[in-house]
């Protein structure tokens, strides 16, 4: 049983599919995220695929600040992801609202709406940092699943 569980966990960490959602960022972070897919970084080496659809995704990458208009979209997308799932907040805006945090329509960082697993700081973060963030998230996922008591919570 334990072996099967470990096997499943390994498979999960070997094939994280990303859903990238831009909550109204300045596109700086988004360009860095997409740079990960280019031959220079080639995230497909790690089995990472950028999918366009929450039903297929394991990791939700969110860039930009959450505002009152798009927070519903964000939670909707998150609800449509089958668990186990991760949320990775990208960039200064995703972490805290960044330079927009005082704006009248802004809710703030991603954590105000969703349970964030990994924060990747930077304005924008480098592609290496983003890949590192995803990998950290996967390690967290594995840790959670190896401790059965925490699993339910997750």
């Amino acid at each position: 049983m334990q072996a099967v569980k470990r096997f499943i966990n390994r498979m999960r960490s070997k094939s994280p599919w990303l859903l990238h959602f831009d909550c109204g960022s300045c596109n700086g972070c988004d360009i860095e995220i997409l740079a990960c897919l280019t031959p220079v970084y080639d995230v497909e080496r790690f089995g990472i695929i950028n999918v366009g659809n929450p039903f297929h995704a394991d990791v939700l990458l969110v860039s930009g600040t959450v505002n009152h208009r798009n927070k519903k979209v964000l939670t909707n997308l998150h609800a449509q992801m089958p668990s186990p799932k991760l949320v990775v907040a990208i960039g200064a805006c995703g972490l805290s609202g960044g330079i927009f945090r005082e704006a009248y329509n802004v809710v703030g960082g991603i954590h105000k709406v969703l349970p964030v697993d990994v924060y990747v700081p930077g304005c924008p973060p480098k592609p290496e940092a983003i890949i590192d963030g995803v990998v950290l998230g996967l390690q967290k996922l594995q840790r959670l699943h190896e401790q059965p008591s925490v699993e339910k919570e997750a």
């Binding site: 959602f21 659809n53 929450p54 519903k72 979209v73 964000l74 909707n76 609800a79 449509q80």
Partner: peptide, 18 residues
């Protein structure tokens, strides 16, 4: 059971988005 994909704008009512 979840509503179908509507670019994150699903209303819970079939065929309708927000």
């Amino acid at each position: 059971i979840v509503p179908a994909y509507m670019s994150g704008l699903q209303t819970g009512q079939p065929f309708f988005f927000q």
